[in-house]
């Protein structure tokens, strides 16, 4: 075992980054246990809102760097407050915390062991739609979720524990592990991103493919997850160019959301596939040309 406290940095600035990483990470419980042992801390009666007061909104907006070393020290001395702070930053944290989440490593795996026919359904409501429609839509929604989840987090590394739908493909495009690896020049970096997004075309379901709507939605969700990565990664580019790329990617993510929504609602997919192809081509062209201004 490793004690997390052995990784505690020696300066305030470094502790800020280290603690923020734990607040958006998966080992906060362990860290709180270690700090509670060091300080003999008990669960506090008061809320962190009372401890941080007006500073709380600054922390949610700009992170722990707004706290003085003494304020941060008080948080570490009463580590149970970190649990409440974690909920707050994940539920209502601003762009700073979103960025921190984007920097954390993805979980190693997630088991796609939900089955869409297990009968999850909303509790009956007086004005509800027919149950049959509800169950069918739950099945589609969950199937999309599972497949995306599997592709996104497991990829080709872990073999599936259960048979997977035939449409499951390998990780592609911006989801590839080396998509955002450092390149020799900014131009080479952007060109690689451009090439990667054009992999979209290799996996678009054929017009006569069974379950085409579902396959297209899954493909779009994969594109969306790659876009999220693009918008949250600290790219190895000059600061101005990096910020422009992240902002541009955030705009693309919104466009993909809209297209996904419309694909899900569409009766005729031929109406939407040209728009999707156009957006992908626009992204590829802009990246290749270095056009990052929104």
């Amino acid at each position: 075992m490793t004690l997390l406290l052995s990784e505690l940095p020696g300066t305030h600035a470094e502790v800020v980054g280290w603690l923020e990483g734990h607040l958006v990470g998966l080992q906060l419980s362990r860290l709180v246990t270690e700090l509670a042992a060091v300080h003999g801390a008990q669960r506090p009666a008061e809320s962190i809102r009372g401890v941080l007061g007006a500073e709380l909104s600054s922390v949610l907006a700009d992170g722990l760097r707004v706290l003085t070393p003494q304020q941060l020290g008080r948080l570490m001395k009463q580590p149970f407050h970190l649990f409440e702070l974690q909920e707050l930053v994940l539920a209502a944290g601003g762009a700073h915390w979103q960025q921190r989440m984007g920097e954390r490593p993805l979980p190693q795996r997630i088991e796609p062991n939900w089955q869409p026919d297990e009968g999850f359904r909303p509790e009956p409501k007086p004005r509800g739609r027919s149950m049959a429609r509800g169950v069918a839509l739950v099945a589609v929604g969950l199937l999309v979720g599972f497949a995306t989840c599997y592709l996104w987090l497991v990829g080709p590394v872990f073999p599936p524990k259960r048979p997977q739908p035939p449409q499951v493909a390998s990780v592609w495009g911006w989801n590839k592990p080396d998509a955002t690896a450092k390149a020799e020049t900014s131009r080479a970096y952007l060109t690689r991103l451009s090439d990667l997004v054009e992999e979209w075309y290799a996996g678009v379901p054929e017009a006569d493919a069974p379950n085409r709507k579902l396959l297209l939605a899954i493909r779009l969700l994969e594109l969306r997850s790659g876009c999220t990565r693009l918008s949250l990664t600290d790219h190895p580019l000059p600061a101005e160019q990096r910020d422009k790329l992240k902002a541009r990617a955030a705009g693309w993510c919104k466009d993909i959301d809209i297209l996904l929504q419309n694909v899900q609602e569409a009766n005729d997919l031929t109406v939407w596939t040209p728009s999707i192809d156009k957006l992908v081509q626009q992204m590829a062209d802009d990246l290749r040309a270095g056009r990052l201004d929104r």
């Binding site: 739609r129 429609r133 509800g134 839509l137 979720g145 969700l221």
Partner: peptide, 18 residues
């Protein structure tokens, strides 16, 4: 709530990491 979960995947993608 009304039985239409067709966009539930969007919600999942938005919040599961958190």
């Amino acid at each position: 709530a009304s039985g239409d979960t067709s966009k539930f995947g969007v919600l999942w993608a938005r919040h599961n990491d958190k």
